[in-house]
C-alpha cells in the first residue's frame, strides 16, 4: 500500500499533509502515516484522487476494486478494537469516503454525473425535472414496448444482447464527450445511458420473472 500511495502522489499531485499523531509529513491519499502508522483523516480528495488515478472517464474498475477491497480490509473495525476513540472514528470516516468513491466510480452513470458536476455542469434529470427529447424518448418507448411484447426467453435474450451493445456504445460516446470537454453532448448522452441501463435492468427482471414462473 505504501508503494501505491507514493505512486499516487506522482500521478495526481495531491501532496502532503501533516499527521495528527506524530506531526510528520504524510501523503494526502495515505490511509496510514508511514512514520508512526496512525490512521489518517480522509480529507477533501476527489474520488479519482482517492484511488490515485487520473481524472478520466475510462476507469479500470477491476483495478480500483482490488485496491478498494484491500483498503477496506485494512480499515476493518476489528483492527481498531483496541485503538483510541479518535482512531476508531477516523477509520470509519476513511471507510465511508472510500465506499462513496468506489460506488460513484463503479457505475458509469453516477461516474458521468460526478464528472459533469466536477466540471460545473448540472446533469439532466434533477429533482422533478422531465425531458422531452423526442429521439431519446421514442427509442426508450420502442424498446420498452418490444420488451413488453416479448413472450419467450429467446426474444428476451435477444433484447438483452441488443440493449447491452447499445449501452456499451453509448458509454463509449459518454467517455469521448466527457474526456473531450463536450459537456452539452455528455449531458444528453448520460441521460440516454441512464435509459439504456434501466431498460437492461427491466429486461433482466422480466427474464427472471419468466424463469421463476
Amino acid at each position: 500500500m505504501m508503494n501505491a500511495a507514493s505512486k499516487n502522489t506522482d500521478a495526481t499531485g495531491n501532496g502532503n499533509k501533516t499527521c495528527w499523531s506524530c506531526k510528520g509529513p504524510v501523503d494526502a491519499v495515505a490511509l496510514f502515516c508511514d512514520t508512526c502508522g496512525a490512521i489518517q483523516a480522509p480529507g477533501q480528495l476527489d474520488h479519482f484522487a482517492r484511488f490515485g488515478i487520473a481524472r478520466d472517464f475510462n476507469v479500470d474498475i477491476d483495478a480500483i476494486e482490488t485496491q478498494y477491497l484491500k483498503q477496506q480490509q485494512a480499515l476493518h473495525p476489528d483492527r481498531f478494537a483496541t485503538k483510541s476513540a479518535r482512531e476508531k472514528a477516523l477509520s470509519q470516516q476513511q471507510a465511508a469516503s472510500l465506499n462513496d468513491a468506489f460506488e460513484t466510480l463503479k457505475n458509469p452513470v453516477s461516474r458521468a454525473v460526478y464528472m459533469l458536476r466536477m466540471a460545473g455542469v448540472e446533469p439532466e434529470g434533477g429533482e422533478g425535472q422531465t425531458v422531452n427529447d423526442p429521439a431519446l424518448l421514442m427509442e426508450a418507448m420502442e424498446m420498452r414496448e418490444a420488451l413488453d411484447d416479448a413472450g419467450d426467453r429467446a426474444q428476451i435474450d435477444a433484447i438483452i444482447r441488443d440493449v447491452r451493445k447499445t449501452a456499451r456504445d453509448c458509454e463509449n460516446e459518454v467517455a469521448t464527450a466527457i474526456n473531450g470537454g463536450a459537456y452539452d453532448a455528455a449531458r444528453k448522452l448520460t441521460t440516454r445511458l441512464r435509459y439504456l441501463l434501466k431498460m437492461a435492468q427491466e429486461a433482466r427482471a422480466k427474464k427472471a420473472r419468466l424463469a421463476a414462473a
Binding site: 434529470g125 422531465t130 426508450a140 418507448m141 435509459y195
Partner: peptide, 13 residues
C-alpha cells in the same frame, strides 16, 4: 405527448 423522468428512466406517452 411523450415525456420522461430521466432520474428514474421512466417514459410516459
Amino acid at each position: 405527448g411523450l415525456v420522461g423522468a430521466p432520474a428514474c428512466g421512466d417514459v410516459m406517452k
